[in-house]
């Protein structure tokens, strides 16, 4: 945790939203690199995934989310024979990034849903807090 102040509902939501944003950016990068070609297996683009981890704040009992870094997928790039391709190696093969477009789309949709859920929960909580604050008028 960057700051040592106790976690509130607001900072927790903010962290969760940032984590979802990292996840969505990773999926978008994968989509953008779908079908990208390189001349060796090592250089080929490998899809990345965000890994989430819980961070429990003992003072308030809330548990937020943090993005624990990105991992590269182990799926091997597709080897294709295309000797006319400018990037083809001496045997005439090119390597295509192993990006599953539908899986990435599903990942983005799920991330967006969870982001919306978080916003909705925060809105409700904020409204209740405001009602409580204004109750002494």
């Amino acid at each position: 945790m960057s700051d040592r102040s106790p976690m509130t509902l607001f900072s927790m939501t903010q962290r969760a939203m940032s984590a979802q944003m990292v996840r969505m950016n990773a999926a978008t990068s994968n989509l953008a690199n779908a079908g990208s070609v390189s001349s060796s297996e090592a250089d080929a683009y490998r899809p990345i995934r965000a890994v989430f981890a819980t961070e429990l704040d003992r003072a308030s009992g809330l548990s937020g989310v943090r993005s624990d870094g990105l991992v590269q997928s182990q799926s091997a790039p597709t080897k294709r024979y295309d000797p006319d391709h400018p990037l083809a190696d001496e045997t005439g093969h090119i390597w295509e990034a192993a990006v599953d477009e539908s899986a990435e789309m599903v990942e983005i949709m799920e991330s967006a849903r969870q982001y919306q859920n978080m916003v909705q929960a925060l809105q409700t909580a904020k409204q209740l807090m405001l009602e409580t604050l204004r109750s002494n008028s």
Binding site: L9, R15, A16, F52, L62, G64, M118
Partner: peptide
């Protein structure tokens, strides 16, 4: 109010493995 925080934590961790 406490329970609201706990439930919001659950929603926030909907995609955390092992939560």
């Amino acid at each position: 109010s406490k329970r609201m925080g706990v439930l919001a934590s659950n929603i926030a961790n909907a995609a955390t493995p092992g939560f």
